[in-house]
Design a protein around this nucleic acid. Structure first.
Length: 440
RNA sequence: CGGAGCGUAGCGCAGCCUGGUAGCGCAUCAGUCUGGGGGACUGAGGGUCGUGGGUUCGAAUCCCGCCGCUCCGACCA
């Protein structure tokens, strides 16, 4: 994108409503604008980040064999009556009526709908197990939205659902999902730790929430330093091997990890290397057996012809929340520091002397070589403005083209995360940038 | 849902207490000079003061209602 022709409204001052760092920075960096309490519009740069996060989620879900689909945001009340949740859910659910007075709702989650769809078409044990997911907007009418996109009312969530013939199968699905989640968060450059959780209104009895560490997180967390060295990149564990899944699950659930709600001081005392900090919940997985399949009449024929009620689980990642959470984990006084894998652009190109033939040529050539994956600051502004905006927006790399180096065909390359700057040949700058993994 | 606060130009704010027809900084536009960390000067544009009603000769200012937003606490991907 050319900055001079982009809707990328950076702010020098912080709007009064923003309190925490990520909210302030998202507004100042021109990523989002609020349209109502807890409801946000995603501007071009913010939307690119959102899509990058969704892309990583998608790739890692696909990698363990989860099928992507898309369910609607609006659901009939009837389905929720079948599960018993229509009355149980309470005022957090946004209820609507159409012109015929039919009762509808804006989905806060999709267990009922996926169960309904599944029961219509799947009739035999031969078709199980299956895992399905979609990335779709949800609405929960929070009493008190706050923290920008981290606790909005409308939010983008990846929700997945597993269907297995029995408990053992469901546990395997659950572990695959946990593995997929660890890979997702690792690729986004954050340390996530699964912690045992209450299963809440979704129901069930096996549940973990994924907490990423950030100094401004909402809850206090306690964990064993053993988590810090773990690596989940592909190759370390196979999602098709039961032994690997077992080994993985044991590794994840053996070291101590708890939020303040479930903190056990006696067990904590025994941890050799203690870590304590703040955390933000970005994912939550549940096994809930037949909580929905049973009342909604989902059955398949078993091997012997008898009816089998599938065991289910559901698995959520807060995609839009992650945008805020990643900023909480990666920022400094000057602005955002995007991990390479989710940054809206690979690099920013700063033309320090717009209108200078040599600078313009260098920048135009550079910009063309990025094929749209760079932000070209071609504004008629002074150097300081461009430096500050680039730092604020958090591009992993800045390529600075000014008259000082341009005459010798050199540019300055700055790494946002470290602040390191050096003058290099143009080709070297491109080589170094391309060496950083685009997709994490 | 309990408690508190705010709404005046794109953003940040003053003015309100003690009514007299709106101001500051930044941003924007034009021009000149500048040119490697938010530059300087000159000039210009932009606000039915959230909204409806009331009091008054006169309301941003006082009174009442409504709407919106935020913060603290209880609750949540």
């Amino acid at each position: 994108m050319r900055l001079s022709r982009s809707l990328l409204p950076t702010l020098k001052e912080t709007p009064a409503e923003a309190q925490i760092a990520s909210h302030r920075l998202m507004l100042r960096a021109g990523l989002v604008r609020q349209t109502a309490s807890g409801i946000y519009a995603w501007l071009p740069a913010g939307y690119r980040v959102l899509q990058n996060i969704a892309r990583i989620v998608r790739e890692e879900q696909d990698a363990i064999g989860t099928q992507e689909m898309l369910m609607p945001t609006i659901q009939p009340a009837e389905l929720w009556r079948q599960s018993g949740r229509y009355d149980a859910y309470g005022p957090e659910m946004l209820r609507l009526k159409d012109r015929h007075e039919r009762e509808l709702l804006y989905g806060p989650t999709n267990e009922e709908m996926i169960t309904d769809i599944f029961r219509q078409s799947v009739k035999s044990y031969r078709e199980l197990p299956q895992m399905l997911y979609h990335i779709q907007w949800k609405f929960r009418d929070e009493v008190r939205p706050r923290f920008g996109v981290m606790r909005g009312r409308e939010f983008l969530m990846k929700d997945a659902y597993s269907f297995d013939l029995d408990y053992a199968g469901a546990v395997a699905s659950y572990r695959k999902m946990m593995l997929s989640y660890m890979r997702i968060f690792q690729r986004m450059g954050v340390k996530a730790i699964p912690m045992e959780a209450e299963s809440g209104p979704i129901g069930g009895n096996l549940s973990h929430e994924f907490i990423i560490l950030a100094p401004t997180g909402e809850s206090e967390v306690f964990y064993d330093a053993a988590f810090e060295a773990m690596d989940f990149s592909s190759g370390t564990f196979s999602h098709t091997s039961d032994d690997d899944l077992e080994r993985f699950f044991v590794q994840m659930t053996t070291p101590y990890a708890a939020t303040d709600e479930k903190h056990d001081t006696a067990a904590w005392e025994k941890v050799a290397e203690k870590r304590q900090g703040r955390g933000i919940e970005v994912g939550h997985i549940f096994y809930f057996g037949t909580k929905y399949s049973e009342p909604m009449g989902l059955t398949v024929a078993g091997r012997d012809g008898s009816k089998v009620v599938p065991h289910m689980g559901s698995y959520g990642v807060g995609v839009s929340r992650l945008v805020g959470a990643l900023i909480e984990a990666h920022h400094d006084d000057a602005g955002i520091i995007w991990p390479d894998s989710v940054a809206p652009f690979k690099a920013a190109i700063l033309n320090l002397k717009q209108g200078d033939a040599v600078c313009d040529k260098i920048c135009e050539d550079l910009y063309a070589s990025f094929a749209g994956n760079a932000l070209y600051d071609d504004r008629e502004d002074r150097a300081g403005v461009k430096f500050n905006d680039a730092d604020l927006m958090g591009h992993p790399w800045q390529i600075v083209a000014g008259p000082r180096g341009a005459a010798n065909g050199r540019v300055e390359l700055k790494r946002r995360a470290t602040g390191e700057r050096q003058e290099v040949e143009i080709a070297d700058a491109l080589a170094r940038i391309n060496a950083t993994a685009r997709n994490g």
